Amino acid sequence: MAVEQLIEARKAKGLTQRDVAARLSKPPSFVAKIEVGERRVDIIEFIAIARAIGTPEMNLLQALLSSLPAVLEI
């Protein structure tokens, strides 16, 4: 699952979902729904989340891309 990179990056920085949500000025449920796969994010939100976590967005994107299968179902 692609969201695993976001979760791993958040935990590696020692941040809770609540911490990330506060940095984004969003409710904790915003991050929780993303992490359990109930909500998808667009590229702008992805960049904002990466920055809130404190991880270079290109590193996170590269990790995400390498984890995806060759063919994606949408």
Score class of each variant (00 low, 15 high):
K26Y: 14
Q17V: 08
V41I: 15
S67E: 15
L64M: 13
V36Q: 14
S29M: 13
E35A: 03
A70C: 04
L68P: 08
M58H: 08
V36N: 15
R10N: 13
I44M: 10
F30H: 11
L6P: 02
G37M: 09
E57T: 10
A12H: 11
P27S: 11
M58N: 06
V71A: 15
A48H: 13
M1S: 08
G54A: 14
E45I: 05
L72K: 11
L68M: 05
S25L: 07
K13C: 01
K26P: 12
A2T: 08
I47K: 02
Q62C: 06
L60E: 09
V3M: 07
R10H: 13
P28E: 09
L61E: 04
V71R: 15
L72Q: 09
L15Q: 11
V41S: 11
A22Y: 00
N59Y: 09
M58D: 07
K13V: 01
T55I: 12
P56K: 02
R18E: 15
M58S: 12
V3R: 12
R23K: 14
L60K: 06
T16D: 11
S25F: 02
L6T: 01
V71G: 11
S67T: 13
S29Y: 10
A52Q: 05
L15V: 10
A50I: 00
K13F: 00
R39T: 06
I53D: 05
S25M: 04
A50F: 00
L72C: 03
I74A: 10
V31W: 00
L24S: 08
L65V: 07
A48F: 11
G14E: 12
S29G: 05
A22I: 03
R18W: 03
G14S: 08
R51M: 13
R51N: 15
R39P: 05
Q17F: 05
M1C: 10
P69Q: 05
L15C: 04
L65C: 06
T16E: 04
V41W: 13
F30I: 12
M1W: 01
L64N: 08
R40F: 05
V3E: 10
A22G: 05
I49L: 04
A52L: 04
G14R: 13
A12G: 09
V31K: 03
S25H: 05
A22P: 03
G14V: 08
E8A: 15
L60P: 07
A21E: 14
P69T: 07
N59R: 13
V36D: 15
M58A: 08
A2Y: 03
T55L: 01
G54N: 13
E35V: 07
G37F: 04
D19P: 00
E57D: 11
L64Y: 12
V31E: 02
R18T: 14
S66R: 14
S67R: 13
